[in-house]
């Protein structure tokens, strides 16, 4: 790690371990819990969660970055788990919908989604909620228009969109004490 990349000295293969293609040991921290897994490097974070950690709250809608159902946070930022390889998350904090609740207590955004009926079939819902909480932290929820734009990466085929906006609005306003 000493080499900062400025010079073009000879590479140090010792720091460049080649892992895989067979299953490799990796340690992932998901919802604050460290888990050791043996996965091929090609396994996506999404499949690692769903097929290997029994964390099925993160949904697979398209597996190609076009629906947002697999939205999780990596190091606090909302990203798509389907386009993230699990192995790249070593040493990062992964948060899924299962990590949003504290004990039996729903997160305010989850409660607001329930109350505003911001869901129907529920399949896109975890992704919507992970996106919505991140959206408030990002500070892009001042107007309905802004909420709509910044939530457009999460497709809801049941089209609960107006209710999703009102749920987000309510949590925003409660946060800011309005």
């Amino acid at each position: 790690m000493a080499d900062k990349g400025a010079s073009l000295s000879v590479a140090k293969p010792s720091t460049m371990e080649i892992r895989g293609p067979d299953g490799v040991r990796m340690e992932l921290v998901v919802n604050g819990v460290s888990r050791v897994l043996h996965l091929e490097p090609r396994v996506s974070l999404l499949d690692a969660l769903r097929e290997h950690m029994a964390l099925t709250g993160t949904k697979k809608g398209c597996d190609q970055g076009t629906c947002g159902a697999c939205t999780v946070w990596v190091d606090g930022r909302r990203v798509l788990a389907c386009l993230t390889l699990a192995i790249t998350c070593e040493g990062r904090d992964v948060t899924t919908i299962e990590g949003l609740t504290e004990g039996d207590e729903l997160h305010p955004m989850q409660r607001a989604f329930l109350e505003h009926d911001a869901l129907q079939c529920g399949y896109c819902t975890p992704g919507q909620i992970m996106s919505a909480v991140a959206l408030l932290n990002e500070g892009h929820a001042e107007t309905d228009r802004e909420i709509a734009e910044w939530m457009s990466g999460n497709i809801c085929r049941c089209a609960a969109y107006p209710h999703i906006r009102s749920a987000i609005r309510e949590v925003r306003d409660r946060k800011t004490g309005q």
Binding site: M1, D3, K4, G5, S7, L8, S9, V10, A11, K12, P13, T15, M16, E17, I18, R19, G20, P21, D22, V24, E40, P41, R42, L85, I87
Partner: peptide, 19 residues
């Protein structure tokens, strides 16, 4: 997706040399 191996680059010259 075919099976792939994985290398985490720790410096630019190393990454460039590897590829």
């Amino acid at each position: 997706m075919r099976a792939i191996s994985y290398t985490r680059a720790t410096d630019v010259p190393g990454a460039v040399a590897a590829v």
